[in-house]
Amino acid sequence: MIYIAVALTAEARPLITYFRLKKDNEIKKYQVFKNEEIVLIITGTGMLQGAIGITYVLGNLDIREEDIFVNLGICGAVEESTSIGDIILCNKIINNSSKKNFYPDMLFKHEFREGTLETFFHVVDREIEIDKIQGEIVDMEGAGIYEAASLFFLQHQINIIKIVSDHLNTSEITGEKVIELIENKIDKIAKWLGERKSFHIGNKEIFSSEEKENIKKIERNLKLTESMHYEFIELIKYYKIQNKSIENIILKYSDIKIKDKREGKINFERIRKEIIEL
Rank of each mutant, 00 (worst) to 15 (best):
S198H: 09
H200V: 11
F120Y: 14
V178L: 05
H167L: 05
F120N: 05
I182H: 09
R220G: 05
N248V: 10
I201V: 15
E172S: 14
T170F: 14
L222W: 08
D187K: 10
I206K: 08
I206T: 12
G202M: 09
N169V: 02
S245R: 11
I189K: 03
I160C: 06
G144S: 02
E118Q: 15
S198D: 14
K252H: 05
Y238W: 03
S165Y: 03
K212S: 05
H200A: 11
A190G: 01
L193K: 03
E147S: 15
L151S: 15
I241L: 10
S198W: 02
T170P: 06
N243C: 08
H167M: 08
K162T: 07
I186M: 07
F120C: 01
Y239K: 15
F199K: 13
G144V: 00
E247N: 12
V123I: 15
E183W: 11
R126Q: 12
A149D: 03
E247H: 03
E141L: 02
E136H: 13
L222I: 07
N221W: 02
E183F: 10
N221R: 04
E127N: 12
G175N: 11
Q134P: 00
F232C: 07
Y230H: 14
F152T: 08
E183I: 09
S165T: 02
I241V: 14
E219L: 04
K185Y: 00
M140E: 05
I137L: 01
K191G: 01
V164H: 03
K252R: 13
E180L: 13
V138H: 01
H200S: 15
Y238P: 00
H110Q: 02
K191I: 03
K188W: 00
S208L: 05
R126F: 15
I161V: 15
T116F: 01
I215R: 07
N184R: 15
S209A: 08
K240G: 02
K244P: 03
L235A: 10
E211A: 04
D131H: 10
T225A: 09
L222A: 08
Y146N: 03
Y238R: 13
A148V: 01
N243L: 11
T116I: 15
K244A: 02
I160A: 08
E183N: 14
M228N: 11
F120D: 01
D166N: 13
D139G: 06
G144M: 00
V178Y: 07
T174Q: 04
I145W: 01
L151H: 15
L251A: 10
K188L: 10
T225K: 14
L168Q: 10
I233Y: 04
I186D: 06
G115W: 10
K109Q: 08
K191S: 10
L224A: 07
E213G: 00
F199A: 14
